[in-house]
Simulated assay, not measured.
Amino acid sequence: MEKAAKVVRHILNIAIAFSLALMSILVFGNVVLRYAFNSGITWSEEMARFLFIWMVFLGAIVALKENEHLGVDMLVRKLSARWKKVVYVISNLLILYTLWLVLEGSWGMTQLNMDSSAPATGLPLSFIYGIGIVMSVGMGIIVLRNLYQAVFGNKSGDELIMTRESEDLPADRPDSQGGTT
């Protein structure tokens, strides 16, 4: 199971890096063409926008897996281990419900826009709304796994806190300033 998760995470990271690289090339190339040759690629801005949307949604899946999303845990840190587990289960059930709403809405929008195409690229607009399906299914699997581990596993109360303070990060991990935390 862990090996499959590692492979999927690797594929997601490659897709994110590919999206960022292609988006940068398209935008930079279009800027050079506009200023140097007074021309441009008509579909590059639209494709960069599509790639950005996919990159953000795929990044949200990876961030959930790594517990990198923002969270407020002032109250949860003060609770006993039993209540931390209760709050953890409730919050994950709320997340699952929200993901269901995203899945349902994305599925509807994807079906609705199958015959509509983007003006510059000609890609079906369902390409944009389909990422909501991918994201909600991917995140749903992660949340279900976390719920299973919380209910049937032997996670401690501190492991159930989803956010991490900068002091909780490993000492060898560099921070955004180039130093270590």
Rank of each mutant, 00 (worst) to 15 (best):
L20N: 10
T181C: 11
A60R: 07
Y148S: 14
K65Y: 11
L101R: 05
I16V: 15
K65A: 14
Y148N: 14
L93H: 00
V76M: 09
D73V: 01
L26A: 12
M135T: 13
Q149T: 10
L112E: 11
G132A: 04
M109N: 06
G138L: 05
S80L: 00
G132T: 03
E167H: 12
V87Q: 07
M135N: 03
G140N: 04
I141F: 08
A17S: 13
M162F: 11
E165D: 15
M55G: 05
M162C: 05
F52E: 01
L12I: 14
M23C: 12
E2T: 12
T42C: 06
H69V: 00
M1A: 13
K84F: 00
G130T: 05
F152Q: 12
K6Q: 14
L169S: 08
A81F: 07
F127S: 14
I131S: 09
T181R: 14
F37C: 09
W83F: 10
L101E: 06
F37A: 15
M55F: 12
D73M: 01
K85A: 00
A150N: 02
I141H: 04
L93V: 07
W43I: 12
T110C: 07
G105D: 07
P170M: 05
K85M: 02
L103M: 03
P119H: 06
I142W: 10
E45H: 11
R34Q: 08
R173L: 15
G132I: 01
A21N: 07
S166W: 13
P124C: 05
N67F: 01
H10G: 15
S116I: 03
T98H: 03
F18W: 10
L125K: 13
Q149V: 12
N13K: 13
Q149Y: 08
R9W: 06
D73R: 00
R9H: 12
G105K: 08
A17W: 04
N38R: 13
G59Y: 00
K84E: 01
Q111E: 11
G40F: 08
A5F: 15
N30H: 03
A48Y: 10
R77V: 02
M47D: 04
K6N: 12
P119Q: 08
F18L: 15
L79C: 01
A36T: 12
S19F: 13
P124E: 09
S19L: 14
M47N: 05
M139D: 04
M23G: 07
G138N: 04
T163Y: 08
G140Y: 00
L51S: 00
E2M: 14
K85G: 01
V134F: 11
F50K: 02
G105Q: 08
G108W: 09
H10F: 15
Y97P: 03
W54G: 02
T180L: 15
A4H: 11
S24N: 09
G140F: 00
P174G: 08
S126L: 05
V137I: 15
D73H: 01
F127W: 10
A150W: 05
G59T: 02
T121H: 06
V32M: 11
G130Y: 00
G130K: 01
Q111W: 07
L20K: 07
E45C: 07
H69G: 00
